[in-house]
Structures are given as C-alpha cells and as structure tokens.
Design a protein around this nucleic acid. Structure first.
Lengths: 227, 227
DNA sequence: GCAAATATAATAGTATTACTATCGTTTTTG
DNA sequence: CAAAAACGATAGTAATACTATTATATTTGC
C-alpha cells in the first residue's frame, strides 16, 4: 500500500466508492482531473468517458472506483463537508465565547474558498464552485432516501449538527437551529451563484462581502431574541 | 382559436415554448399529465416518450410544444411563480400595513400549497412538489445565462422584486432585501424537502408550521433593526 | 527474484435517451 | 369546401451510462 503521509486525512463514507480513490495513483488522478472537468463542463455534461480521455485511461477503469457519476458527486460533496468541518475546528478551537465561534463559523461557511494547496490532488476552490453550482443535484433525486440510508449525507448532517450546537449554546431556547444553519449553508451557495448569473435575486455591493454580512447579521438578530 | 374563458390567465414567457400549450387540447393534456408524471418519476427519469404513452400521443407531437424537457421545466417554474404572484396580489391587496402584507406574503410563500382547482389542467399542489424537489435544476445548468437572457427567470425575478419592495417600505435602510427574499423562497423549499428526506437538517415540530414560523420570525427580526 | 494476485488498458457491446426527419391522415378555419 | 395546420406513425441517429471480456502491466508476498 502506497499510503502517502499527507498533512490531513479527510474521511469519506465507504459506501460512496468501490475502491478508495485516495489509495492509488489512478484514483488521485480521477480526483485531480475530475474536479476541474466537472467545473468546466457542468455536472450534466460531464461523463466518465470524457474524464478517461483527459487522464489517458478508460471508462471501465474509472468505473472500478465509482459505481456511477452520481456517486462520484456524492463522494465530492461528502469530502467537501468533511473538509469544511476540519477547517471549522481549526478556526474555532480555543475560542471561548460562543458568539465569536459562531461568527467565525459563518464567515468560513459563507466566504469564498481559496485553495490552500494542502491536498495536491484536490483543488478546494474548484470543488467549492462545484458545490455552489451543483450540490443540490446530490440530493435532488429519487434515490435520496436510499443514499441517505447508506450514509451519503452523514458529513453534511454532522457539520450542521456541530454548528447547531453552538447556536444552542448561545440561546438554549432557540427552536430552529438546524433550519437556521442549513438555510445559511444552502442560501450562501445560492446567493453566490445568483450574484454571478441572476444578480436581480441578490444585492451585490462593491468592496464588502455582502453574503457574509447578510447571513452574519441575520443570525445574530434571529437567535439573540428569546420569545 | 379555442380561447377558453378561464377565471385567470397566467402568462408565461413566449420563449419557453414553441407552441402555447394552453392553446389546444393536446397542449393542456401535456400539462395535465406531465405534472403528475414528473412528480412521480422525478425530473431526471421523466421523458417525453413516457409522457406520450400516458397521453396516448407521440414524442414528436410533444416536441412541437416544447423544444426539450428542460424548457418544459422552465415553463412550469415560470408558470408557478407567475401564479404565486397572482395569489400574492389577492392576499395582500387592500392591506394598508406593510408589515401585515409582508407577513401574509411570507406565509403564502412558505406554507404548503393546496390545489384550488381553478385551473383544471394544472394541479398546483403537485406542481409545488416539483418546485420543491427540482426547481434548482431549472437554473443549475451551463445554459443559465442564455436562458436568463431570453426571460426564462423573469417571473421569479419579478416576484422577488415585488416582495423586496415591501421590505424596503418597512425599512428603507435595509441593505439586502433581494437576498432576504430569495433566501426565504429557496430556503423554505429546501426545508420542506429536508423535513421529508433529511430531517436532521431541519427542526420539524408537531402541530405547527415550523417552516413558516421560522422564516416569519427571522424576517421580522432581521429587517426591523436599523444599523 | 519469481509466481500469483491484482490493477489497468483495450475493445466491444447494450439499452436508453434526447432528439430529428419524413410522410400520410385528421382536424380546423377562413 | 379547399387550403392550411395539427397530429400520429414510423424510422433513424449520436450520445450516454453503463457491462463484459480478455490481454497486458504492475505489485506483492514468499
């Protein structure tokens, strides 16, 4: 086994791949070239055949790693949320005040992702573009219940739970912490997409990150009241 | 022309169809049976061939109404938002207080849709299910800019604008009215989907409409502050 | 260092999808 | 009632989303 000692190791649910793509050179190539190809073509026009051509391999070989292209998308989203949780832990550890922790969390969730180059075969910035443009396709399918059963959305749910816990720490009486957090996560993705393609659905302002400001203010005011 | 004198007439952008489906018996059949079929199969598994079989017509005939199945989805979403605006006008007309108007609007946007049977060939309840489960597929595509240019999202944008105006009436200093409204619309759809398929991402409570309550409270508190 | 196991490449093949094209028959309408 | 429009029937195509088979590398365990 060619286990590379990478700085971090993002764990993805085993049911989302047939063979762990992180465990071989070909697997890493699939990730490394697959992400920019989905970003370029869009998920609908992306095919394993096209990816095989790019990495000079074959369709059949990619199918040995992923059952189908939808599982590949689930793998990528699952990786992304696990990675986000890891970043979040780092950004909030040792911070006493829960309001500060929540503010930093919302900033991280809603701001633009830049690549940190820690993982050479995954471009986090392009991956976040995919999440912004296509993540709803991960669950917007008739298979959602089966996929949920095998743990396809576990890392997403875990992230939402972890942040909801901070909300409850700030206001134990707040009734809708999960709704609030999933609204922020999905919403910020939508707003970023809208600001590029359907600007009339947003309020893009120069010189500030309107999306982060909007969700930060909204959160503070929503949870700081007791009723 | 067999113009039926229906109570209301929802106008859909002409670029979304080749031939107006409201203008013929076959066209109305496409709508009448197409909506439940998409709801049943999901948009991905829905095909014109399958619909043709249900309505005892042919693929080619359906293609004379809609360029492709994506345009059909755009037609349906566009129809839905135009219908929603019409409902909204009725629900808020003659109401002086803008806060009351906004509350009624949010209720209408976020609560479950029941069929009113006004339009015999469109089941609004099933259509709202389609919107909840699949509406992101309408814009989550590489063609979004071209489709936006031909007016595919005009009714959605108009609805958001109209509600944003109420927000601004309440608080002229509020900076993010469009973000707020599109967050509520998209968010409430997501929450309704999550409550059925991924309940850990929401907070479903018995005996009340948590989704409406959540977005109503959130809105009031977010816009009633000046900063 | 070599045989056995495993991974990958090459190729072929299939059912389905998302259309387009043609043409004959109804139906509509001016 | 003739001309036009709409519809149905049928056929055909390129691409997609896979599966299957076999040959050739590559890895690994002894």
């Amino acid at each position: 086994m060619n286990q590379i000692l990478s700085n971090i190791n993002i764990k993805v649910n085993e049911n989302l791949y047939l063979k762990n793509p992180e465990s071989s050179v070909l697997g890493k190539k699939i990730l490394k070239e697959g992400i920019p190809l989905i970003d370029e073509l869009g998920f609908d026009d992306f095919t394993f055949k096209k990816l095989a051509k790019v990495i000079k391999s074959t369709e059949a070989s990619i199918y040995r790693y992923f059952e189908n292209k939808h599982k590949f998308l689930l793998y990528l989203t699952s990786w992304y949320w696990a990675w986000m949780e890891y970043k979040l832990l780092f950004a909030t550890t040792n911070i006493e005040c829960p309001k500060d922790r929540l503010n930093r969390t919302i900033k991280l969730l809603t701001e633009e992702v830049i690549e940190d180059g820690n993982i050479p075969h995954i471009n986090e910035r392009l991956l976040s573009h995919i999440l912004i443009a296509e993540s709803s396709k991960a669950y917007s399918t008739k298979m959602v219940d089966d996929e949920n059963n095998i743990g396809a959305f576990a890392s997403y749910k875990q992230l939402v739970q972890r942040i909801s816990d901070i909300v409850i720490e700030i206001n134990p009486n707040y009734k809708y912490p999960h709704m609030l957090i999933s609204t922020i996560i999905e919403g910020s993705h939508h707003q970023r997409f809208f600001s590029e393609h359907l600007p009339k659905l947003t309020d893009v302002l120069e010189g500030e990150d309107a999306i982060t400001s909007f969700y930060t203010e909204l959160t503070i005011q929503t949870i700081s009241n007791n009723y």
